[in-house]
Structure formats: C-alpha cells, structure tokens
Simulated assay, not measured.
Amino acid sequence: MDTKIHLEAGNLRETINEDNSASSQDWVKAMIFIHRHLDEGLKSEISSQLKLCGETITEEDMLEKTFSTFHASNVLLQQQYRERGFTEYNQLISVLLVAEQNNELLMKNH
C-alpha cells in the first residue's frame, strides 16, 4: 500500500499496472524505488517464485533487462555500463544506485 501511495505521488502508479503505457524512464524510476524499499528476503522470494513457475532467471537475464530499460537518451551510458562487464546483477544495481545518489547531490549543489 505504501508503495502504491508513493508511486501515485510521483505520477508513477501506472507503471505497476499490467499492460501499461508508461515510459521506460518512468518504469525505471518506479523500479529503483521498489528495489530500494523491498526487504532482502522478499527480493530472493520473488526470484524463487519465478523459478518455481518454470522460469529460470539468470544473472545475465537480469543484467540484460536492466540495460534494456535505459532511456533512449542514455544509450551512451548503457554502452559504458555494458563494457564494464558486470557478471552479477547486485554489482550493477549498486553502481547505478551510487550514480543516482551522486547525480542527486550534484543537482542539489548546482
């Protein structure tokens, strides 16, 4: 419920509806919020449930899905992150979260 309220406040609620028409940039913003606020146990439970449904989710799949959600205006960044050769999803997400925090700090200082 808290997540829905936060997404609604940020005009991102549509991103969690099936067959939505949200932009990839909005989807990424929503996923970053959800990722930050999900309990670690719940994160692994979601992956486990997908595996139980017959879908095997590999690190490569998660990395590719993350790269494919970069906004079209950030193609260069996408390529740079791909070239870093991440092999674990958690490594990439950690780097992206730090980059986001740095960007927020730069914007505040600007």
Rank of each mutant, 00 (worst) to 15 (best):
S94D: 12
F70E: 05
R13L: 15
T69V: 14
I57C: 11
E55S: 12
V28A: 13
K108C: 07
S48G: 08
Q80A: 13
E60T: 06
A99I: 05
I46L: 13
H6Y: 14
T15I: 05
T69K: 15
L92E: 06
A9K: 15
Q91L: 10
T56M: 11
I34H: 03
Q101I: 05
I16N: 01
A22I: 07
L105R: 12
L76G: 09
V75P: 00
L42W: 08
W27D: 07
H35I: 04
E18N: 07
H110Q: 12
L106G: 02
N109D: 10
D26A: 14
E18T: 09
L52D: 08
D19T: 07
S48H: 06
T56N: 13
E40C: 04
N20A: 11
M107R: 15
H37V: 08
K29D: 04
L12K: 01
I34T: 02
S21H: 09
S68F: 10
Q78G: 11
L63D: 02
V28Q: 04
M62I: 06
T69Y: 13
I93S: 02
A9P: 01
E100S: 10
L92N: 03
N103F: 07
G54N: 04
L52N: 10
E59G: 06
D26I: 04
N74R: 12
C53T: 03
L76Q: 14
Q79G: 09
T87C: 04
T66E: 10
N74Y: 05
E59C: 09
I5V: 12
F67P: 00
M62Q: 14
R36W: 02
Q79F: 04
E100N: 10
G54I: 06
T66P: 00
Y89S: 07
D39I: 06
N103M: 10
E104G: 12
Q49Y: 07
I5M: 05
G10S: 08
E88R: 14
V75M: 13
T3S: 07
Q91V: 02
N109V: 14
F67G: 01
R13H: 10
